[in-house]
Design a protein around this nucleic acid. Structure first.
Length: 559
RNA sequence: GCGCCUGUAGUGAAACGGAUAUCACGACUGCCUUCGAAGCAGUUAAUGGAGGUUCGAAUCCUCCCGGGCGCACCA
């Protein structure tokens, strides 16, 4: 509706101010007396045509009324705004659409041809936590967000490829191996440090991974392996026995697991064929690479980064930055995704400029990569901050979180807040309050509807050919309006990634339903009215279940 | 020091530059002989501070005060 309205307004404007090119803003006013939709174009136009906003609004309103759209019963100019009031006719059409399309309501039609699908394929990289320990509840926040965002993007006709990037090489895998060796005892730490260890911190026990899981891994891993081998083995085990099961339990789905190691083929022949050489050659040709202190540097400052970055360390090993260039090149150029969306923890945000710089250097258009940063979840215990650190073994795992508060409550809780929100999380408080989690409010509405539908028609189904015109009450119309907002919410989220608007919408919808329920009986003496109201709540049930489903939350029939 | 994020009722949070700042929890009043009271109706209470831009600022700009994160040849 919003989009249709924008076109309608644009048409009316072109009459009076043909050179207007600005964006037309259509919003849903907070106060119902200001209409179902409103636009502020008159304020914008007033600057161009130098007339008072209210006068322009009045003229436009007259123009709009002339269009005789059956969707509105009233279009008025008020305080410079133009307010639109939806007609009941329009609402009844929406209602029957919901009942007809069911789960498909609000979904953009899927491009049917393969070619089209391909151009709409989005790559989503999320969680991608290092395989050096179990997933934490902080990883869960990003995980739930990514999962729900993918679901929502898919309703707009995009195909979303969900990938977990596994950092299975590099320094932290060595550290992991070292941690395991230490836990195994036998060889002392001093024997396992590399001969060329240059700084004290490299052998500092503080930097090793701790926690019970290290001891468990130590038992499973052969003592004969060296640090590097033990690290590799441990990472693989962590992925298999901690990360994947936790994701399964969380209902977070992935299409693929991308190994960082695979970016560096071991055989020289494969390596020659890989993009590694191609990219290095390109950068060299562009004179963007130089040697300093025995390392190979990338002139990222030429593309807006604050300093140049190392690609190959003096040890000859590639940095994580090198891997990330290869990985993003692979996603965008080799696999040709139309867009890559990365969801990062805020602790990595400082890394973004160099990656953006690198892609720019490789002539990859800026809009191909979008980085969403999730602010961190601070852990509070007994009123004090509890520093989360995998290395120190201080963390609450995703599995623990789900066991304590339940999956539905955990998902709803995290999804309710914008990625920019810094969250403090007290597990004791969360457990105590989980009973009050608004997710139950939404689920309760769903269960209540199911119960009524069952009572009316124990065998299932309900009569066709409802007389929607009988739905005249304010609460009934408000409920339909809220239902009709659903596609717009999905549309907005697919553009601005504000996933938190969906759980909030679900709460509002449940609220409109409860409101209606309190004032009007669904099952009553009037057979036709009963049928119409049953249809109304059946439609509500569809949207509630759909919204919850996109969030990865169950819609129970009983609770 | 520099960069990113952030400061809204007692608490946790919403609000694409729009109209009387919204929701939940808490506290206080009411509402179950009729479809599920995990509900409904009502009361309470808020934009860190000072300037500026704008017809209009929680939102944009400047400064000040607070909080989180980052500033590696770790990821």
């Amino acid at each position: 509706m919003k989009e249709a309205l924008k076109i309608l307004i644009a048409g009316a404007i072109s009459e009076s101010a043909p050179d207007f090119k600005g964006n037309i803003l259509v919003e849903i006013p907070e106060k119902k007396e200001n209409g179902d939709y409103a636009t502020n174009v008159a304020f914008i136009l007033s600057k161009i045509v130098h007339r008072p906003p209210q006068e322009i609004a009045e003229n436009l309103a007259v123009e709009l009324v002339k269009q005789k759209s059956s969707d509105f019963f009233k279009i008025e100019a008020k305080n410079g705004f133009i307010n639109f009031f939806l007609s009941e006719e329009h609402l009844y059409i929406e209602l029957s659409e919901i009942l007809k399309k069911k789960k498909k309501y609000g979904c953009a039609s899927n491009p049917s041809s393969l070619k089209l699908r391909r151009t709409n394929e989005i790559h989503l990289d999320f969680i991608s936590a290092n395989p050096t320990g179990p997933l934490t509840m902080g990883n869960g926040r990003g995980g739930f967000y990514g999962d729900a965002l993918a679901n929502i993007l898919e309703t707009r006709g995009n195909k979303v490829f969900r990938e977990y990037y596994v950092n299975d090489r590099g320094e932290q895998i060595l550290t992991l191996g070292r941690s395991v060796k230490l836990a195994q005892g036998g060889s002392s730490i001093s024997q396992t440090i590399p001969a060329n260890a240059s700084s004290v911190s490299e052998i500092d026990e503080e930097n090793l991974y701790k926690g019970e899981y290290i001891n468990k891994l130590a038992e499973k891993i052969g003592k004969k392996l060296n640090e590097s081998e033990a690290g590799q083995k441990a990472a693989a085990l962590i992925l298999k026995t901690y990360i994947k099961p936790a994701l399964k339990k969380s209902g977070i789905k992935f299409d693929a697991w991308f190994s960082e190691k695979s970016l560096y083929p071991s055989s020289p022949r494969l390596r020659r064929a890989s993009k590694y050489e191609e990219i290095m050659r390109e950068l060299m040709e562009k004179d963007l690479i130089y040697e300093k202190d025995g390392a190979t540097w990338f002139k990222t400052t030429q593309f807006g980064d604050s300093e140049d970055r190392v690609l190959i360390k003096k040890t000859g090993d590639e940095t994580y930055f090198m891997s990330d260039i290869l990985y993003h090149f692979d996603k965008i150029k080799t696999r040709k995704f139309s867009k890559a969306i990365d969801i990062w923890g805020a602790d990595h945000h400082g890394y973004a400029p160099r990656l953006i710089a690198a892609l720019k250097a490789l002539d990859i258009p800026e809009d191909k990569l979008e980085i969403i940063t999730m602010q961190l979840v601070r852990l509070i215990k007994n009123g004090k901050e509890f520093k989360i650190s995998k290395r120190a073994g201080n963390f609450i795992t995703l599995e623990e979180l789900i066991n304590e508060v339940g999956l539905d409550a955990a998902r709803f809780f995290f999804l309710l807040y914008s990625p920019n929100t810094h969250m403090d999380f007290d597990i004791a408080l969360a457990k105590e309050r989980s009973q009050k989690n608004p997710v139950y409010y939404v689920q309760y509405a769903h269960a209540r509807i199911t119960s009524i539908l069952q009572k009316a028609h124990p065998t299932g189904g309900h009569p066709k050919g409802e007389k929607f015109k009988l739905l005249k009450e304010k609460e009934e119309l408000n409920l339909i309006k809220k239902l009709a907002e659903f596609p717009e919410i999905l549309n907005d989220i697919s553009k601005n990634y504000e996933v938190h608007r969906l759980p909030r919408y679900a709460m509002e919808l449940a609220g409109e339903f409860h409101n209606f329920y309190e004032k009007h009986r669904v099952i009553n003496e009037d057979k036709n009215l009963t049928a119409a109201r049953l249809s109304l709540i059946a439609a509500t049930k569809i949207i509630l279940a759909n919204a919850l489903g996109l969030l990865g939350i169950s819609a129970p029939d009983k609770m």
